[in-house]
Design a protein around this nucleic acid. Structure first.
Lengths: 202, 202
DNA sequence: TCGAGATGTTAGTCACCGTTAACGTAACCG
DNA sequence: CGGTTACGTTAACGGTGACTAACATCTCGA
């Protein structure tokens, strides 16, 4: 009664399934608080089966964070190069960036959480690449903010960007307070106001 | 050549020293990423010496989080009952609350980080008490915000409060970007603007 | 002075965890 | 068919880590 699937198809699904379950577990209990056995159990296989799909626990985390930071960075790059036509204002580009981050935070809360907590557990070959992608992502924001307010020192723009990420990424912790339908405009308004205030201090 | 101290004095100092070191380590590597041996080494004693001061690793964490949430809740309560005289506006009370949280986030970044990440590792007798204190703290904020904007639904105020905490607590992660002297007014301005935006959505 | 308490130490013990080994099974492909 | 490949399983191994036991030292008060 099972539907036949190509091995490749199965493999990809299983990998994705594992990454998804692991993300949720890591977000809830931390990397070291989750065992290989836990992750296996969460997808219905048990323990060492994971080694058919990943080289190890750290490799699993590395792939997860690499995927997240790539997607964020790509989305931001796409926004900047497509929305930011000469006609579009920097303000509109910023709104588009905000939407990218808000969508991500609301739809993938576990991934966002792991993304900014567990980089320290990624071994060095991949760690640098992830750092690089994260930095590029931040720089997209800083560039747009700098266009929007040329007089503002870059250090303050960077700090403001991190603060806005903190605001938006706090969603996972306050989940359930408000339906996502209301959360999105709320976050957008708060983040927008915070950014405006940041470039206008003093 | 060693200066004589009362045992009680020594004990208190050592306990505080351990809590401080543990907070930094937990913030950096997560509760399960830090060993008893690590904590001991950080204060110059080694391993099981900690059991002279704490019942165990979880008890240490419990005391740490209990202390943090008590202090936050007390500071907030003090602000509300002393600043919020009939003469003072709710806006001024809110600014005072903001200052409490900003000071805490800037001066005790490790504690703040552990405070909103590691509650899940506290065993049940104390977990409830910490949760209760955290909830009371949030409610102080919500009450002040509600006075400030009576029409706004409480759920949105709560969500906004959590978002502001996220903004302010992100400081530890962007540490070094900006000197604390500049960080404080920046955070104050951003948080103030975010709050105002939250109660005025739509 | 001497016994008690506070505070260390080192040497175990025991559980858990990441990883590997050895082995089974079902599907696909020549 | 028969063999390779994908994907599981259980059993073991080695390391680590929380916690305990047994033992030292130092200070202080009676």
């Amino acid at each position: 009664m099972t539907i036949a699937r190509t091995p490749t198809r199965n493999r990809g699904n299983r990998r994705a399934e594992i990454l998804d379950a692991a993300a949720r577990l890591f977000a809830a209990r931390g990397f070291h608080g989750v065992s290989i056995e836990d992750i296996g159990a969460a997808v219905g296989v048990s323990g060492p089966a994971l080694y058919r799909h990943f080289a190890g626990k750290e490799a699993l985390l590395a792939e997860m964070l690499l995927d997240v930071s790539s997607r964020l960075r790509e989305s931001a790059a796409a926004v900047v190069t497509s929305v930011a036509t000469p006609a579009a204002s920097s303000a509109e580009t910023l709104d588009a960036l905000l939407d990218v981050q808000i969508t991500f935070a609301l739809e993938q809360p576990a991934l966002i959480t792991v993304h900014d907590r567990e980089l320290g557990n990624v071994p060095e070959p991949h760690r640098r690449r992830i750092r690089r992608l994260q930095r590029l992502y931040v720089e997209e924001w800083v560039t747009v903010l700098a266009e929007l307010h040329p007089g503002c020192p870059a250090a303050r723009l960077r700090a403001a960007t991190h603060a806005v990420f903190g605001l938006l990424n706090s969603t996972p912790h306050s989940a359930g307070e408000l339906p996502a339908r209301d959360m999105r405009p709320l976050l957008r308004a708060m983040a927008r106001a915070a950014v405006d205030a940041a470039v206008n201090v003093r």
